[in-house]
Design a protein around this nucleic acid. Structure first.
Ligand code: ZN
Ligand code: ZN
Ligand code: ZN
Ligand code: ZN
Lengths: 152, 152
DNA sequence: TGAATGCGTGTTATAGTATAACGTAACATA
DNA sequence: TATGTTACGTTATACTATAACACGCATTCA
């Protein structure tokens, strides 16, 4: 799904973006939160909360579930990570600057996730909601399947 | 979301539909599976696995988690119920005859769920997938918000 | 300065969701 | 009746997430 690349750059830019965003919004991107974000960004794939927990443990001996869930909540709330409901897993947001609804392509082959947030989908969702006189507040759209590379 | 109605008729018709479908497909809609389906259909809202478990317990003393999860798996697999990933809950399929992808409107006010499975959405999802050369195999689309009645 | 407040984190415990693994009973088919 | 298959019972455990309370530290304001 992601052609071979220097992923350290992805991590680095995700972290520095997050710092800028938090700076601007007056949020505290503490060490803990930054480390959790870094672990979420360890790959372009879904990351489980308890895997983050284990890896935190390496550095700071005593991490307990609330530690990581609280950080994830913070990061979610401010659009830095997303939760994938169909997997109970988390993924870093690939364009956290723009406030937007996010849809996901989840490859079962290479276990990578790509955000696909386009107007066409949003329009279709809104017009369907309208038809039903429904006022949407939060949307989960997760498309599982095989990416170009993995379907060959 | 659902105007006042005689819900017993919903339950009854869901069960008799299920019987027909299983008959045709040569599937065994056992007593247990039928009771689980009935409990899922207790409302038009999401139902939790452990609530089903509790209610099963009333009749058959010793129900354990695998009992209900196995039945739910069977019902899911054959399109008689759907799982709502954003809620970890289950809902009866409102038109199990047609093989189809299902999208859901979930009202946070009255806790009712409506299937909205239209071509426009499917087309938008497929064309987005195409753009990314992605081959979808399973789709989760859950729209949370307020229904017409509850948004007044 | 010192109390008051808010926030982030630590810590313990528990709630909630789901499956593995193994045994037995019921059913189908020959 | 023998045989293989499916459904279910049962025990244990894994996985996911939150409640509740304590502590430290920074900010504010009396
Ligand atoms: Zn990368
Ligand atoms: Zn792939
Ligand atoms: Zn009804
Ligand atoms: Zn409603």
């Amino acid at each position: 799904m992601f052609e071979s690349h220097f992923h350290n750059e992805c991590i680095h830019s995700a972290l520095s973006n997050a710092e800028k965003i938090c700076m601007v919004k007056g949020l505290r991107l503490t060490d803990l939160r930054k480390r959790v974000l870094e672990l979420v960004w360890a790959s372009h794939g879904p990351v489980k909360a308890y895997d983050i927990l284990d890896k935190l443990g390496d550095k700071s001996a005593s991490a307990k579930p609330p530690t990581v869930y609280r950080s994830l909540d913070f990061l979610k709330e401010h659009g830095l990570v997303h939760k994938l409901n169909s997997l109970n897993a988390y993924v870093g947001c690939s364009h956290p600057h723009e406030r937007h609804v996010c849809y996901f392509l989840i490859c079962k082959g290479c276990h990578q996730v790509k955000e696909c947030c386009n107007r066409t989908l949003t329009k279709a969702i809104n017009s369907t909601s309208d038809e039903h006189h429904f006022r949407p507040s939060s949307i989960t759209l997760e498309i599982e399947g095989l990416c170009e590379h993995c379907s060959k």
